[in-house]
Design a protein around this nucleic acid. Sequence first.
DNA 1: AATGAATGAGCCTTCATTCAT
DNA 2: GATGAATGAAGGCTCATTCAT
Lengths: 223, 223, 223, 223
Amino acid sequence: MESSEATRDRLLQAAGEEFACKGFECARIREICIRASANVASVNYHFGDKEKLYIEAVLEAHRCGPGADEEAVDPMAGPDEQLRSFIRHFLGRVLAMQAPDDWRHRLMLRELLHPSSASDALIRESIRPRFDQLQRILRRFCPEAEVRRLNALAFSVIGQCLHYKMARPIAERLIGPEGIEALDLEFLTDHIATFCLAALGVVPPFDAAGESVREEARSSAGS
Amino acid sequence: MESSEATRDRLLQAAGEEFACKGFECARIREICIRASANVASVNYHFGDKEKLYIEAVLEAHRCGPGADEEAVDPMAGPDEQLRSFIRHFLGRVLAMQAPDDWRHRLMLRELLHPSSASDALIRESIRPRFDQLQRILRRFCPEAEVRRLNALAFSVIGQCLHYKMARPIAERLIGPEGIEALDLEFLTDHIATFCLAALGVVPPFDAAGESVREEARSSAGS
Amino acid sequence: MESSEATRDRLLQAAGEEFACKGFECARIREICIRASANVASVNYHFGDKEKLYIEAVLEAHRCGPGADEEAVDPMAGPDEQLRSFIRHFLGRVLAMQAPDDWRHRLMLRELLHPSSASDALIRESIRPRFDQLQRILRRFCPEAEVRRLNALAFSVIGQCLHYKMARPIAERLIGPEGIEALDLEFLTDHIATFCLAALGVVPPFDAAGESVREEARSSAGS
Amino acid sequence: MESSEATRDRLLQAAGEEFACKGFECARIREICIRASANVASVNYHFGDKEKLYIEAVLEAHRCGPGADEEAVDPMAGPDEQLRSFIRHFLGRVLAMQAPDDWRHRLMLRELLHPSSASDALIRESIRPRFDQLQRILRRFCPEAEVRRLNALAFSVIGQCLHYKMARPIAERLIGPEGIEALDLEFLTDHIATFCLAALGVVPPFDAAGESVREEARSSAGS
DNA sequence: AATGAATGAGCCTTCATTCAT
DNA sequence: GATGAATGAAGGCTCATTCAT
């Protein structure tokens, strides 16, 4: 049957969506089957188990996920341009995670918070490469920094980006929907990139407005 | 009856732990009652509902949680000292969240990710005050910055700190347990504070190791 | 304590209402206690049991219920006048059963349909006397009728009256609310009394409108 | 699958019996499933709900119930013959309701007293047709009677019949089992029909025994 | 004497899973 | 190979009842 493979795929797709937006426990196997126009027993038939289906869905998520991200950063560019580019792409993916068909990223995010047995492959093939890439970029800024510092730097970059996904519901309540709206991809990319580059001592910190403060603060820091 | 209040408290404590580590859906009311040495119907009697118990637990979490944080930051100190102090306390709380009896923070974190009807009070009385406090500190660095920038700055600070809680399981797999171990409260406080202050132009970025890079990067940035 | 007796009475009153409108099974002991401003344990304390409370409520219902009904029928009147009077009173009570404080009759009606152990006393002291009274009245119409006929006659009278209580919800759907409204106490008393008296051959059947039909029907009956 | 339909039917049958003799609230879903040799979850699978099962049972009750009643009354017969025929059939059904397997009628009776959401269809398809039929018959006796009178007449007929079902437990205690026994279908049909026809002025009231009384009563009525 | 707290049995429902076809 | 029916284990909740005070 050719429909066998097709059903399997539909199940995987439906499972991905369901797991992504409800989590493993709250996802209903029946709902998945209905979405996939398949029988209730299909999941057990094709995957044996709810958990095995979940793992398959997560693997599928990163398998069919973004692959050309590595090339997104121009290897010939300067380190600051590379970092800016990395942030733009990473942030772009994070902010786009609201899209209904973007269950792959949402699923990966869930794995970030609550790693399951599926996350080994996920880390190996999807997360670590990007993490290493980021570290290679950062290494160019601090060639002699110890590993610990490099890790912390990488987490500082990633943490700022991910926060807009993680804490979005709360952020929205804190600064209002229009406040969130104002923090669009363009602005945030520039903000975080500038923030990090300034922290790395590459570019002057932000706008003129901060200049005066900088002086004041610097003197107070010196005291 | 004093025993009534006592049982209620035991239930609240047990519920807090259970909800904190399993989430609302996966927490079993029976387990909570067993932990609290109470009857299965106790929850219904004292709180009426599983959900009402959850809300009560969340409120209890922030009620008995840290409240004297406001005083933690010396109002007479300079802005850089205040920021450093804020980060230390915030991070301290985040990193301490692993403690088994620290269900209060884990519960609040869950609310961060999946706000429920209990999060209104949580935001109002616990989160917003700290957020406002951070913005007041940051305002001293950028007196004329627009609101949007201030929001982004605050999120940059918070995001870096929270990341160590949010993505800890994955981080541990990325850099190994000893890598995580190395990132202790002292180091991270200094790292994030320095990172932020450098980004704000107050202190020179990091250590001598970075200096040379800065020069190189700056020239490449200028190209 | 004087309040002891008072609480008992309030419980009885509240139980009567609750049982009357929800039935034994659906009545909630907690609701009764709330209504009576009493403790949840009051019922068990004062009556020992939900069922015992029910029985007490039923007995109370007929005890404090109508007692002067016997006198309502003038013993010196003619049989037709007595029957008319009986129907008026019986029907009046049936139709008034909607009143919120008239739980006594509603409770007795419930006993009619689903006799419990409480109904013995109810029948003995409340129902049978009226039944006997009706039969005495009917006996005057048919002095030589056999017992079976007299029973059937009594049930014919009672059945017509009770039907307006029993099947009211359905009747309302059949002929509409305004249809029910039109069947008020005055009209129904006259209708049923005339119907019965005509059946007993005392008065001519109904109005002139029926006269012609009677002739036609009588001839068809004779065929 | 044929077995599916079979199980559904067994559940419906078992539910009908259980609901008929215990009512909706007191009926236990577990008991129903045991009776139907089915799993506890079967009800949920086949009907979704206890209430939906109830509704389905009520609909089934009237669906498979008596349907050829319309033909039971000879349209060519005279009105008195039609009325007598109607009463015989109606009463027959009412009196037969004691049979253990006759849950359909008992269920319909419950709906009479406590209409649920299932009673709409019941009224529309089962009760109203008979009611209309009866009114058409009565109309022949009183061609010019107002609607109100016709309604009251119909209820007088129905009320007398239904009373033997409604109040049977009490009636049995009032006149004893043998008294009830004596009121068999044959006797009651004749009694009620004669009672009504006499009330409608078609036939002379009852037997010779009553004749003399009629004279006496008539004179007393005239006084 | 009377109460508030606590109990445990039992109900309906949900769900992942298995089985016969 | 694939399905619809059936399963049984929990889960949350309700309720009458009991107990300690």
